[in-house]
């Protein structure tokens, strides 16, 4: 929990307080940006912008969500804006997926796409939803506040993102109960 006093000192531009807030929050913010961009350099740049924006716009934080959720929102917005412009993660991941596919002995291609690669191939909004829920552990209310959507739509959005992820993984996942026709394996 980020203390009210710390927030006020940050608002006043106190550098020690800003550092303290950064120390408390930078690990999850950077981790989220790293997974969103699949690039340490881009995550580094976006983390800078996230905190610059946060420190200069703290006056706009109205306290309706937690400060951590608000920071996530700033970071997610930065990442989505960046990805919309750059569209580079898709390219990177296509390259990565290509590297992860090796020709098998009979000439067919065997996919070895792992969940991280598949995650980064998702549309950025889906990726953000899944990361906020399963990596960062946010509840649906906080996800709604972070993404800026109605709380009632979070479940369906997560279902859709999960389904898209499953489709990407479908050919490579080591499903338990692999005899099930719903979960084919070893297909590429």
């Amino acid at each position: 929990m980020i203390e009210h006093d710390l927030l006020e000192r940050c608002r006043a531009g106190n550098r020690d307080a800003q550092r303290e807030l950064y120390d408390q929050t930078s690990a999850p913010i950077y981790r989220l940006l790293l997974k969103m961009t699949a690039s340490p350099d881009d995550a580094f740049d976006l983390a800078q912008e996230t905190y610059l924006k946060a420190f200069t716009q703290l006056g706009r934080f109205d306290g309706r969500s937690s400060l951590a959720t608000w920071l996530y929102r700033v970071a997610v917005n930065e990442a989505l804006q960046f990805l919309r412009r750059a569209k580079q993660t898709r390219v990177k991941l296509q390259e990565l997926a290509a590297e992860d596919c090796a020709a098998s002995e009979n000439g067919r291609t065997t996919a070895r796409l792992d969940v991280n690669n598949a995650l980064a191939m998702l549309p950025p909004n889906d990726r953000a939803m899944l990361l906020l829920r399963y990596q960062e552990g946010l509840n649906y209310r906080s996800i709604a506040a972070t993404i800026g959507c109605a709380e009632g739509t979070v479940a369906s959005r997560l279902n859709r993102a999960r389904e898209r992820l499953r489709n990407l993984l479908q050919n490579s996942y080591e499903w338990e109960g692999s005899d099930s026709p719903m979960h084919p394996k070893d297909r590429c």
Binding site: S26, A27, Y30, Q48, Y51, V115, L130, L131, Y134, Q135
Partner: peptide
């Protein structure tokens, strides 16, 4: 599988860059 498997290290020079 989506849960973080390992701790992500924040680059040491990130705060310096922000500051």
């Amino acid at each position: 599988d989506l849960a973080p498997q390992v701790d992500t290290l924040v680059p040491e020079n990130l705060w310096t860059a922000i500051e």
